[in-house]
Nucleic acid binder design. Structure first.
Lengths: 349, 349
DNA sequence: ACCATTTTTTGGAGCGCTCCAAGAATTTTA
DNA sequence: TAAAATTCTTGGAGCGCTCCAAAAAATGGT
């Protein structure tokens, strides 16, 4: 690859002049400019290499998005929630004229990814991993962490997941439901895990603050109706797991209400209900979480704990772009009641 | 920001040793290593700056995605098609451990964006703009252009849009439809444009090869049934335009079949139909284009010209990643018949 | 204790560029 | 036509790093 210097030599001018031809052409005499351009063409020089400029100027003009946990960026893109989040981020990037780098990192490479990412700031997906935070801090880059409060010195944005979960349960108990099932998130690879009441392996900690908080909200909401979460089957599935619905219906046939951690999970349930001819909300009520655009279009339209996902992504990007004093933002949620929930009635299956 | 040299000075060792401490720690004596690390900590040195390494090594380890036309990346993310495309690209990026840079470029900045993008290759969204191609070629980066054949020397991937369009029309004429409306794409800002038959402003060129080819397919399909596209109202709307459905129903009430350029447009129609209580497919049949995941979940599930969008994105990424001899790939499409189309019957509106 | 090995550390070279102060060339003014 | 003003061009400095050949230090064997 030819360089500025090569072109300069060929055209009989200096490096600096060639640079000017490409960056401030008005500064160089038309005749000379033409000679330089001809030389550049002849050598197949395609303009100054951004690498050189970068080292000189130091701005990448890009922000990085790192998926939560060990997720890949394709997994983020696959989920309705992830897509809206990235959409929100990209909105802010559009406004700022910034590139959005979706940074990949497997379990072992994510630290190196953060170390090497060509970005001016980071958005970290929710995650319990303090190591990632430390990695970003090391680079002195502005960053924000999602769905996980990391203290007053660190930018974070989360929703009020607990209240949302409580609201979902209240809605259902208010309708008269007494038999629940909870669809929680499995954050490790593998098939759905069913935790039946009283089982030894049962645990309430899903591992990510986001999950735990919602689970805790469910617990609280149930307690308010004199129900114990200890008696509620909890099924952990990987987001998007297509068998989730089948497992729920097979293992917890008595449930009249199903609580989920995301619209995506709820969609899985709804799909399976259609497949089995189970009437929603006649036989069973289903509540989603997130209020993504998809939730409005399911059959039937879904009751869900809605948050402003796009707004959250956008705010996150703005926070790293603006790089102001650290803030911890908690965004409100709102229960959107649609047609996937109703009073329980005698079940006919 | 401290540099390797600063740390070296503080620790009483050379630049090179500090570099080794961070990149090949096994090469330096534990005691020394520790001293260097202490110095780094004291100075707040967060590891070697990627900019320096980059200049030295020359690989960005990223590929860029540039939206078609004057679209912003948020607009890509908003459309069902765009999302699946990016998902496909990200799949290949995950496999290759590469970063996916969504490169922004407004009308005036897209050339500079290409010039400066910190990527090893490019995926160009469909576009008629030869200038973009030239810009990428200048940088000597491997690239692929989508939905637009740019000759034998240039990587391209497109679907067989014409055949898809023909199949859609055949399906509808086979069902007995004689009254059509076509929802085409407006590629400039502004409200829907209605081209009624015989109107002076009428034109069949939407501007992007992708649109023109489909329009041409519709024309051919209609001709096969002895119908002329010249008698079919064509409405151009910006993708996602919420008023599209209203315009179609208001301006072309006699149409029993609506052809669209994308699932997204068809969704708009379907939404409006629900709003107005128009029965699909009883009163009117609607055909989408692309076969995105969303098309399967509409009410009613949509008949659509399906392509493997995810596969296309993935292939595109592979082509730039692998950088082999230029190929022009044409992907097949398949008409997926679902419930949004049926034989026309007397219209009751 | 000396020499041969092996392990560790060093510092020059170079990646490609932009900035900028200073020098050279050209144009304007008197 | 010479001096002054203006326009254009130059090349050094420096951005921060990694590689590598060579020097230095440590280790081992006799």
């Amino acid at each position: 690859m030819p360089t500025l210097a090569d072109v300069g030599k060929a055209a009989g001018v200096s490096r600096g002049t060639v640079s000017n031809v490409f960056n401030r052409p008005e500064l160089v005499r038309p005749e000379l400019r033409e000679r330089v351009e001809a030389a550049a063409r002849a050598l197949g020089f395609g303009g100054p290499d951004p690498k050189g400029r970068l080292l000189r100027d130091g701005k990448f003009n890009a922000i990085g998005f790192m998926p939560p946990g060990a997720y890949a960026i394709s997994e983020v893109m696959r989920s309705p929630y992830g897509r809206e989040l990235v959409l929100g981020v990209s909105l802010a990037c559009d406004e700022a004229g910034t590139t959005l780098s979706l940074v990949n990192g497997t379990d072992n490479t994510r630290f190196a990814s953060i170390r090497d990412a060509l970005v001016d700031g980071f958005i970290l997906g929710h995650s319990a991993d303090i190591g990632l935070i430390v990695s970003v801090q090391r680079r002195r880059l502005p960053f924000v962490i999602l769905e996980s409060d990391a203290g007053p010195d660190i930018n974070s944005i989360k929703i009020d997941g607990r209240s949302g979960a409580v609201a979902a349960v209240r809605h259902l108990t208010g309708l008269g439901h007494r038999h629940f099932a909870i669809l929680s998130v499995r954050r490790t690879p593998g098939p759905p895990i069913v935790h039946m009441p009283g089982q030894a392996t049962r645990r309430l900690l899903a591992g990510f603050p986001l999950d735990d908080e919602r689970l805790d909200g469910f617990k609280q909401g149930l307690a308010e109706a004199n129900l114990s979460i200890d008696n509620v089957p909890i099924i952990e599935t990987i987001p998007g797991e297509p068998s989730a619905g089948a497992v729920v219906f097979d293992r917890v046939p008595e449930a009249t209400a199903i609580l989920t951690m995301s619209d995506w999970q709820a969609i899985t349930i709804l799909d399976e209900a259609v497949r089995r001819g189970i009437d929603v909300p006649g036989h069973v009520s289903v509540v989603g979480f997130d209020g993504t655009a998809e939730s409005a279009r399911t059959t039937p339209p879904m009751t869900t704990v809605a948050q402003d996902v796009i707004g959250k992504g956008r705010l996150a990007a703005r926070m790293v772009l603006d790089n102001e004093a650290p803030r911890q933002v908690v965004l409100p949620v709102e229960l959107v009641v649609r047609a996937s929930t109703a009073a329980p009635r005698t079940k006919i299956r």
